[in-house]
Design a protein around this nucleic acid. Structure first.
Lengths: 341, 341
DNA sequence: ATTAGCACTCATTCAAGAAGAGTGCTAACA
DNA sequence: TGTTAGCACTCTTCTTGAATGAGTGCTAAT
């Protein structure tokens, strides 16, 4: 059987209607809703075909039809029209660049959640790729050093290092100079064991103490924890099909634990189609607790190598058009904000 | 009418039983459950009295009784016995002091949630009170300075400051020395406008630029945002009386927004009885969305002035004895960890 | 003061019936 | 041959009423 133009139109009508109402949609509704001028009986025949082909399904014998994952997939891939309107409102929220990346990301998550009425998440750029701009060791206590590490995009890391013996001012100064000249401009990926060994050698005599510090700094730089900010998790209660205890509890847990979210968001980063936007429908998502949801992810890039991902989680009858449009807007906003400088 | 010994015993039995089952408890149950050797009829009479006095109430005419807020209150104030057992398991989780306060607090929230099966929250100590240990300005870019501020307990604050003109190395060094000598050991509360003015004067000629920087630093020190970490929010789904959509959604929202939590936690800090532990039952909580919950808060103190609060949110039939015992353990743990150094 | 007994209340459960939405199929029609 | 009207059928949902059972309040006896 072939999916001709009329069947497509009917499928589209079914999906659009279901997106709005969340209720199974019957043949009579379609007959009136579309401009096809077909009777409900004809629609019924076509719908039976569409069901056989797997694009829609019936919750029970005498109910209307709802889109299957396959149906949504077709819709997203070929029938969707991005909505431009309503997106502008977000712009003003993002115009000024925050000096703290964390603040900016939290704000984006928040605004997105409010705007879409779905749950949102956003991963901070991996520091692995970001280049070191500045390192500084300072003494805060007799046996404690503070290491401040600044990366591109003003990502800041602090670490308190404990040392056995006391460091004199001169050694500290030397160490600072050494660390900066050696490591400046490198990305964390590029700092390997060989380089650290070389640095230890250069540092010369104080071997024991100094190497201890260098190791600690290397460790601090390396320590990677993927920061993820979420917002609007309680939006899931807006959608009855997600709001029952079982599902809601699992979802909220996933959002709280954040670890699984990380995997989901990172997967997107890897799997880059040209737009950086990706849609997972139902079972397609790699996170089990979201099997009744759809997830739209968009990767963003602040500057070279500083990549993160934004994700929006909602019911399968999510307003794909709008969500994709909004994400695209944010992508360009961030791009403009950080590129042109 | 007077609350005699027997009535108290019956009330206690009703509450204990209700804490376990979550179901209204009837006269017959009490008759068997207690060692009073009274028939259900007698119990019924007593229960009628207790109801009249407002300690228990009937969901509907022919149901058993459940404790009222007033009943819980009496229980918590006079009948509770803290449970010692089971608490030990937490100890090993906290033995080693984390170098990052944030990590420690998150961990506490997590462990508490897992241990109690309630939702938990913990506020980081207010930096207002904490004494400055160390300030450092560094140049990260031509027009950007990084201010690192370390307080007692190794609380670290970073701020990127933007400046109009360029600062030469010498001025920067001077500024650093000035800031440290002037401000070291003071708490943020103590840094007032007069002091800042004096500093500007001392800094001398470069008035414009320098005063700009000093203002920015003062601002950075002052900027107060109460950090709150939460965990186990989805535990509320374990308790049917909280798990319906309306309530659950509101609660989860409160936990996500965190602002209201802040007010709740701060209130506790102010209102210090000697143990630092406080119980809010039902309507007593200042947060509207928790009117069907009970909240137990405990303040902790890391070192002089570094005070924060831990909160546990659960159903009114929360296991008060156990929760209080656990919180008390944590208090002493933190105390030992930070005092003896 | 305590208890046994009994009538009464009310939430909960279940089954049966009615209503309504929507289908599939057949037969008629253009 | 594609489209449509009509009708029987299916299945969910809502309502109703009866049965069940837990638990009470009250009265009378101990």
């Amino acid at each position: 059987m072939e999916l001709d133009e009329r069947k497509k139109k009917i499928l589209q009508a079914v999906i659009r209607n279901y997106l709005e109402t969340g209720e199974p949609v019957g043949s009579r509704t379609i007959s009136k809703y579309t401009d096809l001028n077909l009777s409900s009986a004809t629609i019924r025949n076509e719908m039976a075909d569409l069901e056989e082909m797997g694009y829609i399904l019936q919750p029970h014998t005498s109910a209307g039809r709802i889109p299957s994952d396959k149906g949504y997939r077709l819709y997203v891939d070929t029938m969707m029209e991005e909505k431009e309107r309503e997106v502008v409102a977000m712009q003003e929220m993002l115009v000024e660049r925050q000096d703290k990346l964390e603040t900016l990301l939290k704000k984006i998550a928040r605004v997105l959640a409010q705007n879409t009425q779905y749950a949102t998440m956003i991963s901070a750029p991996q520091t692995k790729r970001s280049k070191l701009k500045f390192i500084q060791l300072s003494r805060v206590d007799t046996h404690q050093l503070l290491a401040v590490i600044v990366g591109e995009g003003n990502v800041i890391k602090n670490n308190i290092l404990s040392v056995q013996d006391e460091l004199d001012d001169e050694t500290l100064l030397k160490l600072n100079i050494l660390l900066n000249t050696q490591l400046n401009g490198l990305s964390i990926d590029e700092i390997n064991l060989g380089m650290i060994a070389a640095m230890k050698q250069q540092a010369g005599i104080h071997s024991k103490l100094v190497s201890e510090v260098i190791d600690a700094v290397a460790e601090a730089i390396r320590a990677e924890n993927l920061e993820i900010y979420t917002s609007g998790t309680n939006n899931i209660f807006r959608y009855p099909e997600l709001a029952d205890q079982q599902r809601a509890s699992e979802l909220i847990n996933t959002f709280e634990e954040k670890q699984l979210l990380g995997e989901l968001l990172q997967e997107t980063g890897a799997d880059g189609d040209e737009t950086g936007i990706q849609v997972y429908i139902g079972e397609e998502t790699p996170v089990q607790s979201m099997k009744d949801c759809s997830v739209v992810t968009a990767s963003y890039e602040l500057s070279d190598g500083m990549k993160g991902t934004i994700g929006i989680v909602g019911p399968k009858r999510m307003d794909y058009d709008r969500v994709v449009a909004i994400l695209r807007t944010i992508q360009t906003q961030l791009d403009e904000l950080y590129r042109k400088e």
